[in-house]
Design a protein around this nucleic acid. Sequence first.
RNA 1: GGGGGAGUGUCCCGAGUGGCAAAGGGGGCGGACUGUAAAUCCGCUGGCUUGCGCCUUCGCAGGUUCGAGUCCUGCCUCCCCCA
Length: 416
Amino acid sequence: MSAFRSPFMKEFAARGHLHQCTAEAELDALMAKERIAGYIGFDCTAPSLHIGNLTQIMRLRVLQRAGHKPIVVVGGGTTKVGDPSGKDETRQLLNDAAIEANKERHKEIYRRFLKFGDGPTDAIMVDNAEWLDTLQYIPFLRDVGRHFTINRMITMDSVKLRLDREQPLTFLEFNYMIMQSYDFVELYRRYGCRLQMGGSDQWGNIVSGIDLARRTDSAELFGLTSPLITTSSGAKMGKTAAGAVWLSADMLSPYDYWQYWRNVEDADVGRFLRVFTDLPLDEIARLEALKGADVNEAKKVLANEATALCHGRAAADQAAETSRKTFEGDGMSSNLPTIEVPQAEFAAGISVLAAFTRAGLTSSNGDARRQIAGGGLRINDEAVSDEKLTLGQTQLHDGVIKLSLGKKKHVLLKPV
RNA sequence: GGGGGAGUGUCCCGAGUGGCAAAGGGGGCGGACUGUAAAUCCGCUGGCUUGCGCCUUCGCAGGUUCGAGUCCUGCCUCCCCCA
């Protein structure tokens, strides 16, 4: 296992990214000898990417750091088909305009994590719509479709899952595997790309592409999958009360992003440091060895580093400072998430119920009432006991009112 | 084409066969305990008002009934068996 020669494979494995690999020894030898291009595909199903996608991006970072060339494939074409892998039912299809809009937002995110350009190890970004959109049905079936047998396809996990569960799998989705296989071949032809990486649920699709390339181009391509990252309590990671942990600041503030990492379970710190930061492995080993309350130090490092990668060092420092003041200090930080209320409306008086709901801390007035009954709401750090309370001038401190749900969620209400 | 079964609180699973805002889990949120952790214990988990009030929910649309998730009819979707 540890006998890898190439810097890439060594680090990839050491950081816990390695799950399955085709022709492991050959790939290792190839990467030790020469620079190769490797890709990961991302579909454009959401307006932002989340930390599940980030695990993949971090793998491309490892690739780039080891002196190879990362290719980000944005799935402008494949998103129109919809990947059935790992999903037990059909996803809602997006229209072209939504896909296009998502794609543009994603591009901005990739640029934060990878260095793009024309240099030998600079990353490049390509859209598979470039070749998929213009495919001709009959020629494609004859050139590519002939290499796929139904017998084989229905044994693939992504297909079998649906069939076993007796859930419908449309012909459209059934074709996703073929699209992705074709992508790999096309990338090999265009960029000499030899490696495809992906999550463990992509194994079947990746292997299909390798087979296709061998048949059509007599090319030897390689595949590498990574384990699905879960929290130690078994949950798919990246879900919070508010939804996914997004990488776009307009969908999840840098402060909340920082807080997500700060609050991971003890058992996850080491693993997450290896995957989501670039810290040297011996430094991570030191942090991972911390016991008891000292683990909090490791969590802060994780939060700082992960946030700096995503939102920049300045934003990370500010989030850390805001957190310090909020949780460890006495003063109130003005950098907490803030909602603004028109002065006139504020002057007329806002009920506690409305204020918390407006701030997004509670989902309805009824919810706010229940939280008050349970002692969960605080204004300027004092528990709310009266649900009829009206907020006004008297609660203002430095021009804001601090609303809190539980110990961790704080929002400032600011009249403007 | 024929026969049988299923669709429940828009997070999920899942009881329910005329009185239900609807059992029970899981998840989530809050409280206690802690270290902004885990485990444990407690509370909450349709909306609007909280005065015992009103409204909206059990695939869709009608019907029977004082009253239906629960009965009847039609439709949609899925599954199984037969052809």
